[in-house]
Amino acid sequence: MDLKPWIYIVLLGIAAVLYALMLPKRREETVSSERVVKEVESTLEAYMAEVQNENEQLVELVSQMKQELTAKQQAQQEQVSELRQRMLVAEQKLTESDTRLRIAEDQLTRTATLSEGSAAATSEVEDISPPVPSIKSRYAELFDLYEQGKSIDVIAKNTGFQRGEVQLIIQLAKQEESV
């Protein structure tokens, strides 16, 4: 094959033109890939900023919930303290009521003993000992309310006695009447 030098030059020129045409494509690909990288970076930065903002909101919400929980716990502690105080007061009143009830029972027992003793004694003993007032006379206000048909609770409230005391006094009066 006898190739002439001008063919080499033409072939070499064609190769140079083709290379020159391909070179801008490579530059465009490089520019295009840099653009994609920048877009990805900006998207990631925006996403990270959004995640950070959501995290800050979440931390704020958790701290608010913690404060509300603390406030509720404190309110419940105050309620428990108040209920304990009320329970102590109620226990004291119950103790006082039990004491008054025992005293009333003792007085009733003494009265019943004296009544039995005076029934056996002659009329001379009755003249010597002062008359023992009846339960109805000692608790006139209570029996006025009872005769008006008021409930035990209303009587207890108006007279200042406990409910159990009112019931006991009424029962003692019934026993006294039957004797």
Rank of each mutant, 00 (worst) to 15 (best):
Q85K: 01
S178T: 15
L101N: 03
S118A: 08
A119Q: 14
V10F: 13
S134R: 04
V40K: 06
V166D: 00
D127E: 12
L101C: 00
I152E: 08
K93N: 12
Q167D: 02
L101Y: 03
D144V: 08
V80L: 14
Q57E: 06
E54S: 09
Q175R: 01
V62N: 08
E39R: 10
S151E: 07
E41T: 04
A104R: 05
S81V: 10
V179S: 12
P5F: 13
L172R: 00
V10T: 15
D127W: 02
Y8K: 04
E28K: 11
A49Y: 07
S178I: 14
S151A: 06
A140T: 13
E29H: 02
Q77L: 13
T70E: 12
A140I: 00
S151H: 04
D153G: 03
D2I: 02
Q73R: 08
T113H: 04
S42Q: 06
V17M: 08
I169H: 00
Y19C: 08
N53V: 09
Q148E: 13
I152C: 03
W6T: 06
R163F: 02
L3V: 07
V62G: 03
E68W: 02
G160A: 06
F143P: 05
T109E: 11
E177V: 07
P24L: 05
R138S: 12
V62D: 04
V51R: 15
S151V: 06
T122M: 08
E50Y: 07
I170C: 01
L21A: 09
E177R: 07
V37E: 11
M65I: 14
T99S: 07
E116S: 07
Q148A: 14
E177N: 08
Q162Y: 10
V51D: 11
G164R: 09
N53L: 10
E116C: 03
E28V: 06
I7R: 03
D153S: 15
V31A: 15
Y19H: 07
Q74S: 14
D106M: 07
Y47V: 10
E50L: 14
S81E: 12
V40N: 05
M48G: 05
G149S: 01
T113K: 05
E126Y: 11
D153E: 15
L11T: 11
Q175Y: 00
A71F: 04
Q148P: 00
N158Q: 14
E176V: 02
Y47W: 03
A112P: 00
A49T: 09
L58D: 03
L12F: 08
L88D: 11
K72N: 08
L69K: 02
D98T: 01
L83Q: 11
